[in-house]
Amino acid sequence: MFDTNITLNQFVEAIGDTFYMVGMSLLLGTIIGTIFGILIVVTKPGGIIPFPIVYMILNPIINIIRSVPFIILIVALIPFTRSIVGTSIGNNAAIVPLIIFITPFIARLVENSLLEVGPGIIEAAESMGATPFQVIWHFILPEAFGSLILSLTTATISLVGASAMAGTVGAGGVGNIAIVYGYQRFDSFAMFSTVVILIIIVQVIQSTGNKLARMIRRN
């Protein structure tokens, strides 16, 4: 019906690859990024556990990594990737730079979300004799939870976009089909359908995130 070289199976496989890469890097990136984000907020001068050295090291590292375009990051990290996952091509090889790419991004988003929690809440916590850990766990994180979900939604969509470039190191994914078939082989159908699939994926992620955040914020 369409003049195209790709099969339905390839699509299904590509969608699976995208989910795999995004899921894995999101999971690890969220864990590390959230920890970094919390560290930045609490160790800041005037924070609840002021520790200027930690802040002065973490803050520029995050900025430096965020300055490097993802496509450059993939290539620059090849030796590092090989030492970690044993290969420099394929889906697993793409996950390493994706994590390195998304972690500082998530750290910044988490930082912004946590800073939205008013100083009054923190003061109330301290007036109750809460330890710094309790302030974070019982006050800051629950109050910022809705905003954190929205931040992670943004990060997930960013990852879907970045994973399209994973083809550079021989990984699959929906974006790869768009580049390899759509762009390099002038296959309009492949290009068009992958774009539609990406739009749908992004829409679903965003509206799920919005719904979750609304549920948590209860309004």
């Binding site: 009054g120 003061e123 109330a124 007036s127």
Partner: peptide, 15 residues
Amino acid sequence: KDIGMIFQHFNLLES
């Protein structure tokens, strides 16, 4: 813990 405090803007946890 032996000193309670209340605030102008209440400072309750909205969540």
